[in-house]
Design a protein around this nucleic acid. Sequence first.
DNA 1: CCATTAAACTAACACTTGTTAGTTTGCTTG
DNA 2: CAAGCAAACTAACAAGTGTTAGTTTAATGG
Lengths: 189, 189
Amino acid sequence: MRQETRREEIINTAAKLFKEKGYSAVTMRDLAAEMGIKAASLYNHISSKQEILKEIIISLAENFTKGMQNIKQANISNIDKLEKVVQLHVDITANNTYGMASLNNDWMHLEEKRDYYLALRAAYENDFRNVLIDGVNKGEIVNVNIEVMLFSVLSTLRSLYLWIPKKEDLDTQLLSSQLSKVLINGINI
Amino acid sequence: MRQETRREEIINTAAKLFKEKGYSAVTMRDLAAEMGIKAASLYNHISSKQEILKEIIISLAENFTKGMQNIKQANISNIDKLEKVVQLHVDITANNTYGMASLNNDWMHLEEKRDYYLALRAAYENDFRNVLIDGVNKGEIVNVNIEVMLFSVLSTLRSLYLWIPKKEDLDTQLLSSQLSKVLINGINI
DNA sequence: CCATTAAACTAACACTTGTTAGTTTGCTTG
DNA sequence: CAAGCAAACTAACAAGTGTTAGTTTAATGG
């Protein structure tokens, strides 16, 4: 386990506070107090509050993009692809529960990188949609409204950060497989 | 269609802005500008920024509570109860897309009413959980991890506000039935 | 036509915000 | 030991914050 730099400590602490109160409600003085230093000292390590948010969100978004690239070009069924997507979300979220809150709720405060983030997200949703469409065409997935299926599954995956921290010793493998079953097969007998 | 009071106009406009930027990032001057007046003039109609948030969130939360009371005491199967819950979410969200964003993301800024909100939400989740448990016990619902099923379905329903506004002429009845199918039966063949 | 009233206004307040400049502290290493 | 440096500090700033006080405006109804 590599040692965290001071900069990374600040970013991780910020992510935690951003999850609790949202980006706008967290002041640089709040963040400094949580680190046990004065606000001005933060600027030895980061260049602005903006930059902290950017670091949190963009790295996560790029992780999702990378994961999706691998999955879409794999030579497996579309149901299997969906299971891989579920696992991708569980893994990334388990490793950065705090950051996922910012990704979901504070991306609109990104300013310069906002459009880049939105482009990544749109591409991701589109890749996801294509898995569903191909699955329907090949008879692997039931033929109901694609947008409703996309919305339903993706909403659950995007909300994972709200639930994962509650678990103590999380078995990501187990959660991922249970979640896949529920999302794919539903809940009725 | 009853005429909106000036107060209600302010609260609805605030909800719209809160959805776009979050409660903390919206200033009273932003809100006033959107209404075409000066910030100080808002205080002829509301007593504080806090109060606006409270009005938005608490009324919605109480609507959910009321709806759940009706559903839990109905003499129908647990699967039917779930369908009613889906419809409840679709109806409330379709009628107040903006407010639902605050309910989901800004409840932590409620201050005095925060604990009351959290109590309502915990009770709601518990009623929801009991429908699932009773369904499993009666063999209507598959016996997998209750918390995973609860999380999955509730996350989708709570995220509805992000998707509903995109539809132009929304048929809530249709959306509700499609969503129920996906959530209950899953997406595979 | 005058009194009332809803709803706007201007001006100002005390405080908080992100950030900068310049300085001090205390380790690490040649 | 001296030099270098990472990382803290104090002090201050300009702008923005929610809110109050007191005043003006324009429409309404007896």
